[in-house]
Design a protein around this nucleic acid. Sequence first.
DNA 1: TAGCTTCTGCGTATGGTCTACGCAGAAAAG
DNA 2: CTTTTCTGCGTAGACCATACGCAGAAGCTA
Lengths: 272, 272
Amino acid sequence: MNGPDIELPENVALAWGLRNRPSRGPKRSLSLDQVVSTGIQIAQADGLAAVSMSRVASELGVATMSLYRYVPTKHDLLDLMVDTAYGPPPRPRGVDEGWRPALARWGEGNLTALRRQPWMRHVPISGPPINPNQVRWLEYGLAALRGTGLRATEQISTIMLVSGYARSWATLTADIAEAAARTGQTPAEVGLRYWQHLAVVTAPGPYPAIHELLAEGGEYDEDVDLEWRFGLGRVLDGVAVMIEARAAEASRDAGPSGDGGPSGDGGVPAGA
Amino acid sequence: MNGPDIELPENVALAWGLRNRPSRGPKRSLSLDQVVSTGIQIAQADGLAAVSMSRVASELGVATMSLYRYVPTKHDLLDLMVDTAYGPPPRPRGVDEGWRPALARWGEGNLTALRRQPWMRHVPISGPPINPNQVRWLEYGLAALRGTGLRATEQISTIMLVSGYARSWATLTADIAEAAARTGQTPAEVGLRYWQHLAVVTAPGPYPAIHELLAEGGEYDEDVDLEWRFGLGRVLDGVAVMIEARAAEASRDAGPSGDGGPSGDGGVPAGA
DNA sequence: TAGCTTCTGCGTATGGTCTACGCAGAAAAG
DNA sequence: CTTTTCTGCGTAGACCATACGCAGAAGCTA
């Protein structure tokens, strides 16, 4: 029927299993999935730095160069590792769940995935989402925002907002957790030490806001996810403001010249 | 007066220039700044991958191993490069600028810095901000939120929200721009091609939200910063909701048991 | 001024990394 | 059976970061 007129890049075709396997030569002794999941195992066990082509190969009992029959480049392997390690997004709860809990669960899912495989944060993002699970995540993220009146580009901005925050948060907490594991401390101790270092370096200079923050001090061992949820709640509140404004505008039906909501770009200056 | 009881890590002391230079041996032929800025020049010209110790050294006319008299490790060099390349944050406009424009400018500044030196997005974040400019950025970010009634941890979450979004956005646009430069296309063409690829791979499967998005189609060559500002505006709106709620609560003076604002964690489920 | 100490630049060497190239042989097609 | 095509993989090249240790410069102390 519809032969794809557009030629997909090698990466993408590979990730989606769209490479017509040849029937001529000898059978392959491995599968792409084996290679990818071996890479994931190594990354999970010994960190991303331990994932070398020779390590993966020896783990599979083959020679290093054999892997290049399955993967064009090491970076493509890493991309595939990330895609399968991310896994599928959390399924939408119901049709009429509402955008807010849906997007919240989507964000939480992002964080959970990154927490489960902390090495993923060290794989640089190689472009817009195009691999299977990435696309599924994109689908569910957009699905959460369907029917809200948000435009296409706005939906994408919103999704990047949430996923970017999840990545930031996962990175921070994982960095602290790893530093703690390295030095045999608790994460709370590492956090405390950070604040101490910050206090030392900011002592001579004028850093009123930081000093006020340090003075407030407080509990470092409390549930860190509380702070995460705060930020997520702010995003959702902000999106809600816009959606409600759009809805009000739409129900007014004959909007005169309504461009954007009440606080469409409010407070954001035009220039740099 | 106050000798620092707390021993700073080597990295940090180095970044802050807190290493008491010895008076005994021969004079050093280089300075740390020279090493760092040479690294930045190389990264800016040929990308982060081109920054090798030997390349930096040869650019400076010294032997490779000489650099290790200035920097303990290559990764420390990268951290220093990022810190100085980021530069100082945009100065606050005035004392009573208000938190919203201040935080907006802070976010824009983040994006601008990352846009000016796109290689920075490939340097993995190595921990909470502790180097001089990072701390200055932290200071100004917190300063924007002073007096808003937000708690310390909430201020930090908010800042991570904005900076994470800026990083996401900078990464996406820089990836597209670089892909365009590589293939001699315009960014708009690269974006279009992405949507085409997305259409191809999602054609067989059930991706209603993505297909709706693709059907909406639209203009790819419009001002990309418009989409960026949309997300930033949402964050600021969400923060505004919370701040106003806190203010209202505080003016009610004798709040009975007010824990969080009206939509404190609203819509965010507790479990994963 | 002599000697000691300390620090500098850096030559050498180790043990990695990715991957281009090409060959021997296996499996299927004609 | 021949030809084609694909497989695994051995070899080799071009990098990389960095541990170690040495010769000599520069300052401090006597």
